[in-house]
Amino acid sequence: MQNGSPGFFAGKLDELVSWGRLHSLWPFPYGTACCAIEFMSTESARYDLSRIGSEFVRFTPRQADVLVVSGTITFKQAPILKRIYEQMMEPKWVISMGACACSGGFYDCYCTVPGIDRIIPVDIYIGGCPSRPEAFFDAMLELQEKIKNQSYIEERKKKLKEQWESIKEWGLSIRNWKK
């Protein structure tokens, strides 16, 4: 456990957890435009996303790991997207599919959000209008590569530190209140 690196068992646990995560990514389809049709094609028999373990498309954010935003997001839609992102359980990832979700596309106007990264953090961007199923596969494989390098232990450490800080803050506030 020297210089912060996990030991043998903890390191193996780390690998096991990310292996489990990356082979069962359950997507939540947030389809608002034609990219959603390409997503359906990716899911169904011809391309078959279940080959990489993502066959379960969950229609509730509480059971999903990957938020697939496929389509144009308007300002009226933005709070809904944000709420759905917040309802998802950790760990969660976001794929921004197509030109509209990435940058607003050719809707350079008063009503379209210029890229969903103004609202929620995005892990993978896919170009295209709409993007092809092959491009979606590429993005999923890239996401798997990204998850492989994420450390569960480091995540927990960071979370515990945050929690400890908030507890300390709370304690301090109580002490000040008593004075």
Partner: peptide, 28 residues
């Protein structure tokens, strides 16, 4: 009907800047 409740102005008027965007802070 089309724009959200917190929108100010009328977007298809010629003097409305076409790229002026307005955020909606909560659900309609």
């Amino acid at each position: 009907l089309l724009n959200h409740v917190e929108f100010e102005g009328h977007p298809l008027r010629k003097d409305y800047p076409a790229q002026k965007r307005q955020w909606l802070s909560e659900n309609d």
